[in-house]
């Protein structure tokens, strides 16, 4: 076996890892779409906001420091304490739950029964709002997020695979962070599936996803369910934010991963949790392999920007409901 082949395998593995990261974001979309039929464009910004909140709490930043300084002419920046990572994560989860309440109370409640497209555009507005709000609250500079996840190449994987190739092969390079992210994603999906299958709330969630009116008529409160779903989506956003934030810093581009999650959803289908995972893996592997085999040598590189969308576009032409989506039935 040549070194080129092993390099290809390494690209494949790294694609899988990147795919896991996409899946993490896509999961949040699927949860909200299933429960309320809302295509939540703000999911990416939620991840950014959650990560910013986490960093802010950890470092003891004063919220709205820039605004306060501008209005009152003060110079406050930090409270001067450091919150341990675990406590900070719990507090951030709290913030995301409060956020879910606010969204339900001030946005969703008023938009019941609107067309899906109006709801989608409302979430775009929400995304803009949160983006500005997050920057006002915590500042817009790039922050480093450190909650104790190991980073850098994993030497164990590298050493234990080095024997596969010849003298010029040193083993597969995998980022420890990506490995942790994969494990977290597996745990997250497993617990979400268990939650929705075996708890009372989970059953209510599935009932709402199935039929709003029937769920209402057996006494399930839609508004409570929405708050729960948005809270869970906020939690998933926090997890995605932690992973992406640890990888590349907490910055504006984090919110753009939401756009990357869209083709993932289209491949997997909007209503399927396993679909989100499989779609993410296909997109991750696909774009890395395409860049490695065709993009970099023939097309001048950076094909990762559009490959996912074009793949999804071509795919949809043949199977409009996605891999695992429910069959689209239309009536007049």
């Amino acid at each position: 076996m040549s070194a080129g082949f092993y390099y290809g395998v390494e690209v494949f593995l790294n694609g899988l890892m990147a795919g896991v990261m996409y899946s993490l974001v896509a999961l949040g979309f699927v949860l909200i779409f299933k429960a309320s039929g809302i295509f939540n464009y703000a999911q990416g910004v939620m991840a950014l906001f959650a990560a910013m909140t986490l960093v802010g709490i950890q470092n003891g930043q004063v919220p709205f420091a820039h605004l306060i300084n501008a209005v009152f002419g003060l110079h406050v920046t930090h409270f001067g304490w450091h919150v341990p990572a675990l406590l900070a994560i719990l507090l951030s989860v709290g913030v995301m739950i409060v956020f879910a309440f606010i969204v339900e109370r001030y946005v969703l409640k008023h938009l019941v029964n609107q067309e899906p497209i109006i709801l989608f555009m409302a979430t775009i507005g929400l995304a803009y709002f949160m983006e500005g709000f997050g920057d006002l609250m915590w500042g817009s500079e790039i922050k480093t997020l450190n909650v104790g996840i190991p980073q850098g190449g994993n030497t164990w994987v590298e050493e234990s695979t080095a024997f596969l190739g010849g003298d010029d092969f040193y083993g597969f390079y995998l980022d420890s962070l990506d490995i942790v992210a994969s494990i977290v994603a597996i745990v997250l999906v497993a617990s979400l599936v268990l939650f929705s299958q075996y708890t009372k709330t989970g059953r209510a969630l599935r009932a709402v996803a199935d039929d709003h009116q029937a769920a209402l008529s057996v006494g399930i409160s839609l508004r409570t369910i929405w708050v729960i779903v948005w809270s869970i989506a906020g939690f998933v956003a926090l997890v995605a934010g932690i992973m992406w934030g640890s990888k590349s810093g907490v910055q504006f581009s984090l919110s753009l991963i939401a756009l990357k999650a869209l083709p993932v959803l289209m491949l997997g289908g909007f209503t399927s949790i396993p679909g989100a995972i499989v779609g993410g893996l296909i997109i991750g592997v696909g774009e890395k392999m395409f860049e490695f085999l065709i993009g970099a040598p023939f097309l001048g590189g950076a094909t990762e920007n559009w490959f996912a969308y074009v793949l999804a576009l071509l795919f949809l032409v043949f199977r409009p409901q996605g891999l695992f989506g429910e069959k689209i039935i239309e009536r007049v």
Partner: peptide, 8 residues
Amino acid sequence: HFQFVIVG
């Protein structure tokens, strides 16, 4: 940033 908040 405030402009984003207002527009959104």
